[in-house]
Design a protein around this nucleic acid. Structure first.
Lengths: 207, 207
DNA sequence: CTAGAATTGTGAAATGTTACACGAACCGTG
DNA sequence: CACGGTTCGTGTAACATTTCACAATTCTAG
């Protein structure tokens, strides 16, 4: 049953989770169907059922899925039944926005440390944290056993910081720098570059 | 030759473009090969050649690709040989970070207008723009013919603002709200939710 | 209790994407 | 100019993903 799960399937689970939580909270609904979930996400119902079937049987014929139960199962599958402390590197405008974003806590993450190399920023308060000098990066990661980092530094610094993060033990990096990172095979990377996303859409526009 | 180009191919072109510009600027290189480009991006050389072959023949056997020529061709293909003015909705921390981001201009975009519904923010300067009340949204989009928007508003407002954007003529939306948007078929949407990206990685971590 | 409607989980078919491998073209060297 | 080393563009094969379609199960209503 659970042999080798395609990465593309893993990538959809957080979307299912997000939609289910909306259903539970906004609509106050206790059950749903693959059809309803698919309509909300623009995904076929068969795909949702197939995706979930990689991990077990969570629904009931005739009835569908119990929303809260499925939420719990997805949280378990994605290792979200705990809170991941996150290292944030970069205390510029973007770092500031991330530090103040309220959406992490309820979804399994907490920005726990913020680092920057600018002496003018070190020591400043940001959200409820104090910006630390990037010199302390490795020490903190090792002492605290942090595995997740967000990179909000300029492209010119991104690869060097990445190597320091990886050496210190980080296994998952979300980066906003507009550059491809070289990392070992056992380190996950996710990219977020607004320009790449915009450029992907302009192809379809008439100029 | 150019019949129906897969969306997944279009999605890689901005990455090729980004890597090529780095090659041109940092490494000061005038030619490259599909092999070299692939190594930098973690993509096979065959895939790069196949992707490009959808649009024409840009290389030379034995030599590879002329970097600046390929950059020009990709810019043309992606409709980036012009500057797209962008409507930014939401002047919170994230809107602020986006307004001050220096990476748009050189890559085909310019934040041209910022809107918010908070009277405390309307009239404030942000980067070199004045925050306008969201009441003016439709009027501005129609008068200026804007087609591209970035959504940096809370999830609770996202769908309503989206409908207003679409009605006014926006055809491409990059949204940071953690919610799926319902839009007509001829409107492009790209999603950016840091939590979804983090959740996609925690699956692979040992808790 | 029975009939009918709804919905799951899943093999199999259809479709989409990537990798292979090779002829053709190009360059530099002697 | 001929040869050896590169590299492209591409037809085809291999692989991956999505969709189809249906038996099995559950619920509801009479």
């Amino acid at each position: 049953m659970a042999n080798e799960i395609p990465d593309i399937v893993i990538g959809r689970l957080p979307l299912y989770l997000r939609a289910l939580r909306r259903l539970a909270e906004d609509a106050d609904q206790t059950t749903t169907s693959s059809q309803e979930l698919g309509d909300r996400l623009g995904i076929s119902s068969a795909q949702i059922r197939k995706d979930l079937s990689h991990f077990g049987e969570f629904g009931k014929q005739g009835t569908g899925y119990h929303v809260n139960y499925l939420i719990e199962q997805l949280r378990r599958i994605l290792n979200l039944d705990r809170e991941w402390p996150v290292v944030l590197v970069g205390a510029g405008f973007l770092g500031h926005a991330l530090a103040n974003y309220g959406g992490f806590h309820s979804r399994g993450f907490r920005i726990a440390w913020i680092f920057d190399n600018d002496p003018a920023k070190v020591g400043k308060q940001m959200a409820d944290l104090t910006v630390q000098h990037v010199d302390k990066l490795e020490e903190t990661i090792r002492n605290e056993g942090a595995q997740v980092a967000i990179l909000a530094v300029p492209a010119s610094a991104a690869q060097a910081i990445t190597e320091r993060l990886v050496d210190a033990g980080i296994k998952a990096i979300l980066t906003y720098a507009p550059i491809n990172l070289a990392v070992p095979d056992d380190v996950q990377v996710q990219y977020s570059d607004p320009v790449v996303q915009l450029q992907r859409m302009t192809f379809y526009l008439r100029p």
